[in-house]
Write a protein that binds this DNA or RNA. Structure first.
Lengths: 190, 190
DNA sequence: CGTGATGTGGTGCACTCGTACCATAAACTA
DNA sequence: TAGTTTATGGTACGAGTGCACCACATCACG
């Protein structure tokens, strides 16, 4: 094949531009021409590598989700070879919070897509904000009696995320609130 | 003054059109021409009663918040003259969930504005999704020792709202999860 | 009766949008 | 070397946008 280029690298480069614009000003800022300018490539290239604008946005989201999942698994693996259920659960919950620039940008982009998915019923399953995989993982870690607590924990983390993004809540307080709940669910035997 | 018309009524009529469009397809669907068509008035009237599009969107949000606050207070007043703290807290939390068409539409519109406010730092305080007034009210109702639980409850309700809007959670399950938390905070003395 | 404030309606302009289309360069295959 | 596929660049078009501007009703007041 002639003129071989690294398709995947190009797509990631363009997708990153989508993320920056969407995180800064929502999906409506991620117009084709603006993404092209942000990425430093001619607008025509977005057409070539993604097709229509809809496909560009969805493609960029898929790449973001892949990145996020990889980063999350890496962070959980870093807990050691025999992490306690509490440690794993805490990691999963922290994954939903904007605790560093990567997670913050992902949360912002997800929020932008969230509204779009509320309108587009056919694409809802593409949201990975609080996917069933998380619920399943947590269900494995916790005894059945704590199922309701676990579901509410996930919802709580999502809510804390929103408050943090709005600047209504500091990272310290959010972590503190989560740890308070964990203390209750995993009582210190002492 | 000549040709007196009910300004407030006209503004509400137009604002309602904004809500419907924003709830159905996000803020970007609420273009001036489309809102005019939806409201059944010439586009020029939006200019006259609201000015620029930005002012139209903000004005529509203020009216929505006023409506929501009135409805919430009415629902709390309906609890009787000496409601228990648990009842009040439960009502406040339910106010955040899309439990009927009114609240559902309000939640959808709020979600649409949420993303916009993430970008526009100067307008953040206009969001009333989980305003400090709620936190203050709850702080009054609960002993200091439950402050952390209350904050997490509010976050949890916001998270449940998102899952319900996405169709990942039924109203019954959401209410059940909240009641489960309330049972813990207000133990049955029996 | 005017006179001026208040409200209505329509149109036009400058701009951005998404995407289709066309020409050409580059590199692999035969 | 010729031919084919892959990739790039630029442009043009129709549609939709926010908003400014203008002409005209309608009514209260002098």
């Amino acid at each position: 094949m002639p003129r071989q280029v690294d398709h995947e690298a190009r797509r990631r480069h363009i997708a990153a531009a989508v993320w920056r614009l969407a995180a800064a000003g929502g999906l409506e800022e991620a117009t084709i021409r603006r993404v092209a300018t942000e990425a430093g490539v001619p607008a025509r290239q977005l057409q070539y590598y993604f097709g229509t604008r809809e496909e560009l946005l969805l493609g960029a989201l898929d790449l973001l989700n892949a990145d996020g999942e990889a980063e999350a698994q890496q962070r959980i693996a870093a807990l050691g070879d025999a992490p306690s259920p509490r440690e794993v659960l805490r990691s999963v919950l922290h994954e939903l919070l904007p605790l560093d620039e990567n997670r913050r940008q992902r949360n912002l982009v997800h929020a932008a897509y969230f509204v779009r998915f509320l309108a587009d019923h056919t694409l809802r399953e593409r949201i990975r904000d609080t996917p069933p995989e998380l619920e399943n993982l947590i269900a494995l870690l916790l005894p059945e009696e704590h199922r309701a607590d676990a579901d509410f924990l996930l919802a709580g983390a999502a809510g804390l995320q929103g408050q943090m993004l709005l600047g209504h809540l500091t990272a310290e307080r959010a972590v503190e609130l989560i740890d308070h709940q964990l203390d209750r669910i995993f009582p210190v035997v002492s």
